[in-house]
Design a protein around this nucleic acid. Structure first.
Length: 810
RNA sequence: GCCGAAGUGGCGGAAUUGGCAGACGCAAAGGACUUAAAAUCCUUCGGAGUGUAAACUUCGUGCCGGUUCGAGUCCGGCCUUCGGCACCA
């Protein structure tokens, strides 16, 4: 077979007939299938693209054949650091390299033969796209969900930019793996924390992998507890957050984060110097160093004392870097008997350790005892369980105005400013008099200038571009400056799924009515590395736009699938530095797109992935030729009728055909492409077997072959179009409906069931499939093979599972 | 340390709710066809053992226990690998 020729023919046919274009007329039957778009890197498409796009396309084609109006778009997440770093190295402008890469990738993606509606293509670095990213920013700003603050942020010294919490892994930059520093900078943030509770609660509505939901749950990190107010002897006050108010009677000290503003106020003159030094030390310590010394607690005494609101106990106030200024109130109470960190700290600084919780059942326990238990040595609270105590203690404090119930989240606001060139400009102008002034919406987009010196010097490259940076204030018309930063590329990708259906709309980011109908995405496919970044940001943006009145739905992605990863042949992640990359082009040249797609479908489990191996790719050629031979044999057969009188052979083929339909439908729906292929191969085998019979009915066989081609079409679209046409049908096969199965054909007259004796397999008997339990028992006991085991013994119990198994207990 | 997932033949991988472990392929071995090769077709293919043979026995889903008529699947305790989080009060 000439694969290349067949592929070209059908790709042209699809394009000429606009078969992949979404038709808004049929929006009631819409099915939005979306693969996470990709960054246009310089290299050719890698196996991962084929794996993600190719098999998702099979799902999309399956849905199309099921009668859905499928919308499957494609685009490029084209802002970002690699192009800029490449530019710094080679002098080739990011815009030039990016658009060249996009052209190459488009061509290659088209060779895959995907069912893409290219009229909806988007490129995030196009002004026609980022104009609306800027619009989005301004809406967030207008609704106080975008704000500036001077705060400690993660600075990557190698990338020369701030990065978000979600982009820090083990204290390192996720991109370049350099150690991240903390810096205080004035930055733009998005107030994702406003949505912490809803982002958490709505997870249960989603058909997502449990693993991913758990990761988001942990990332949001809700904890329920209380805030407690302490006064210092000097007359100041501060609050601590705790989830264990029941341990408050065991208070031994309190600790403030070094950055806490009260530290300078309450520190006594004698302690001033050590406190200052400790603060300086703590600020200089990088995140990674703080982690590596996790076990070693350090801190210094401020000289000040605080008073417990519960019992007026006087306790020393420390500062220590194990208390994070960015979580809770930046201050904690120290109860060493019931918290491991406090215990270590108290031992080191010789602070009293007082037990106030004992185990509920009185069993012996050691300090620190961090489990829930019963309060003891706690005065009026004695005897309460931890759960009761937490409520009662806070309730008591609330009455005396010294505390309240409080919920805290681990999630922080999303920092979006980046000190880099190749990104979406922030549409804000800073005026000495008016402050931060939004660029009027009718002046969008704020275009990224081309002639920029992007050599890094630790500041935004746009800052040096005089013509760009110097503007008049839109409010007062005085001299002002543009914000020199660009947006995190995750902002671009946090709403792209809304833009696809509106790609050519130049009046608005999206049309509300149409978007409410075509959204949410019905099936979203992409890597699990985005579990807490992109997937969380997108959910936030949709909820924010909903609250602004732009959208009527709550969640962007109803159903999510993470494809596994195809590793190098050595079992490691493919990388150039490891030299274990596989270039799909080498295979495409020889086998074409369909064979390669078939191999990916059959050779691996889609959710798990696995190490690459091309043993077996030849088998797909063999398989396609096997199908081709049977098609060739039947292509001139005119009759396509069901055999009037079904003999056993026809019943058998019918059973396999309908069983295959049933299984394949379920398999495609659950992205289990490898088992779908296995079932289809079984059908091919069954057709060959029937065909080899002298009495085989030609028309009957042909019917099964057409069903086979339709079942296979989503996995091998070009070949199946060709075969379908060869068999005398009008294209396109994708306008045909996917085969339905007939339940009555799945009922066999007779079934073989296994017989166990005392749980051990001892034989099998054939029974009528409708036989009652009693009838089955009779057949079993009459079977000579079984009877010999039963001689002289009385069965104690006989378990009959119709159509499956019989177990006789002696 | 905490959270999560996985562990099945020589290999990739299958096994509805607990119901014949190893579907479907790959590789391998033997055979048919062929002058030959390729292609195709047929047979065997988890381990150990018994038998001339059809066949039979026994062990077997990371390890140790348990529940059950019956466990790859459920429960308890371990081991290993991978992913995520990491002083979150």
């Amino acid at each position: 077979m000439n694969y290349k020729k067949i592929e070209n023919k059908w790709q042209k046919y699809w394009e000429d007939n606009d078969l992949h274009k979404f038709d808004p007329k049929n929006i009631d039957r819409k099915h939005y299938v979306l693969e996470m778009f990709s960054y246009p890197s310089g290299a050719n498409l890698h196996i991962g693209h084929w794996w993600n796009f190719g098999l998702s396309d099979s799902y999309a084609r399956f849905k199309k054949m099921q009668g859905y109006e499928v919308f499957q778009p494609m685009g490029f997440d084209s802002f970002g650091l690699p192009a800029e770093n490449y530019a710094i190295k080679t002098g080739i402008h990011p815009k030039d390299s990016t658009y060249q890469n996009i052209a190459t990738m488009e061509r290659q993606i088209k060779e895959m033969g995907l069912m893409i509606d290219w009229s909806a293509e988007i490129i995030t670095s196009d002004p026609s796209y980022y104009r609306w990213t800027q619009w989005l920013f301004l809406q967030l700003y207008k609704h106080e969900l975008a704000y500036q603050k001077d705060a400690p942020v993660n600075w990557c010294p190698s990338c020369n930019t701030v990065i978000a919490n979600e982009q820090v892994q083990n204290g390192e930059c996720e991109r370049c793996h350099n150690i991240v520093e903390r810096r205080n900078m004035t930055q733009w943030f998005f107030k994702i924390t406003n949505y912490a509770e809803e982002l958490l609660n709505d997870l249960e509505k989603l058909d997502w992998p449990e693993k991913t939901k758990i990761m988001q749950t942990n990332w949001i990190g809700k904890s329920v507890g209380g805030e407690i107010e302490f006064d210092t002897e000097s007359g100041h006050s501060f609050r601590v957050f705790t989830t264990r108010a029941d341990t408050l009677p065991g208070l031994s000290f309190v600790v403030l984060a070094p950055e806490h503003p009260l530290v300078d106020v309450i520190t006594t003159p004698e302690q001033k110097q050590v406190v200052q030094e400790y603060k300086k030390q703590a600020l200089m310590t990088s995140e990674i160093d703080r982690l590596s010394t996790a076990k070693e607690k350090s801190g210094v005494f401020t000289g000040a004392y605080a008073i417990s609101p519960l019992d007026n106990k006087r306790v020393p106030v420390f500062i220590a870097d194990y208390v994070l200024y960015t979580y809770g109130t930046g201050a904690v109470m120290g109860v060493p008997a019931h918290d491991e960190r406090d215990f270590v700290f108290a031992q080191k600084y010789n602070l009293p350790i007082t037990r106030v919780i004992k185990s509920a059942d009185g069993s012996p326990d050691e300090l620190p005892y961090t489990e829930y238990g019963v309060m003891t040595g706690s005065g009026m609270f004695d005897g309460l369980t931890s759960e009761e105590g937490q409520l009662k203690v806070i309730e008591y404090l609330r009455k005396i105005n010294k505390g309240e119930q409080k919920v805290n989240y681990r999630l922080r606001d999303w920092s979006v400013s980046r000190q880099r060139f190749w990104g979406c400009p922030i549409p804000i102008i800073h005026c000495q008099d008016c402050g931060a002034v939004p660029v009027p919406e009718d002046q969008l987009p704020v275009e990224l200038p081309y002639d920029v010196n992007f050599t890094p010097d630790g500041q935004s490259p746009l800052k040096r571009h005089e013509a760009y940076i110097n503007v008049k204030c839109p409010a007062c018309n005085k001299d002002a400056k543009r914000d020199p930063d660009t947006l995190d590329t995750f902002v671009c990708s946090s709403w792209y799924f809304l833009r696809y259906p509106n790609a050519s709309n130049d009046k608005a980011a999206f049309d509300k009515e149409f978007t409410n109908k075509i959204m949410p995405v019905d099936k979203y496919i992409g890597g699990s590395e985005h579990a807490v970044g992109h997937l969380l940001y997108s959910r936030f943006i949709v909820k924010a736009l909903r609250d602004m009145g732009y959208l009527d739905f709550d969640e962007p992605f109803l159903s999510l699938v993470h494809q596994g990863m195809i590793l190098g042949p050595d079992g490691y992640r493919m990388s150039k530095s490891r030299g274990n990359t596989i270039n799909p082009d080498d295979y495409i040249r020889v086998y074409g797109s369909d064979i390669f797609r078939l191999y990916l479908a059959f050779g691996f489990n889609y959710i798990d992935g696995g190490p690459w191996s091309d043993e077996g790719i030849r088998a797909m050629v063999r398989f396609s030729e096997r199908v081709d031979r049977i098609v060739q044999k039947y292509k001139d057969c005119q009759t396509e009728t069901d055999s009037k009188v079904y003999n056993d052979a026809e019943k058998e083929l019918d059973f396999v055909t309908h069983n295959t339909i049933k299984e394949v439908r379920a398999d495609y729906q659950s992205f289990s492409f490898n088992t779908a292929m296995a079932r289809i191969m079984e059908l091919v085998n069954a057709i060959y077997k029937y065909d080899s019979l002298p009495e085989a009915d030609q028309g009957f066989a042909k019917g099964a072959i057409i069903t086979l081609i339709k079942l296979l079409a989503p996995l091998a679209p070009h070949l199946c179009e060709e075969w379908y046409e060869m068999l005398g049908n009008k294209p396109s096969i994708f306008s045909q409906s996917f085969p339905e199965y007939d339940e009555s054909k799945l009922v066999k007259d007779k079934v073989e069931i296994a017989v166990q004796i005392n749980g051990k397999l001892r034989g099998a008997v054939v029974t009528p499939s409708k036989a009652s339990q009693e009838q089955i028992k009779q057949i079993v006991f009459q079977n000579p093979q079984i009877a010999k085991y039963l001689e002289g013994k009385t069965p104690k119990k006989v378990i009959v599972i119709p159509r499956r198994i019989v177990n006789i207990v002696l």
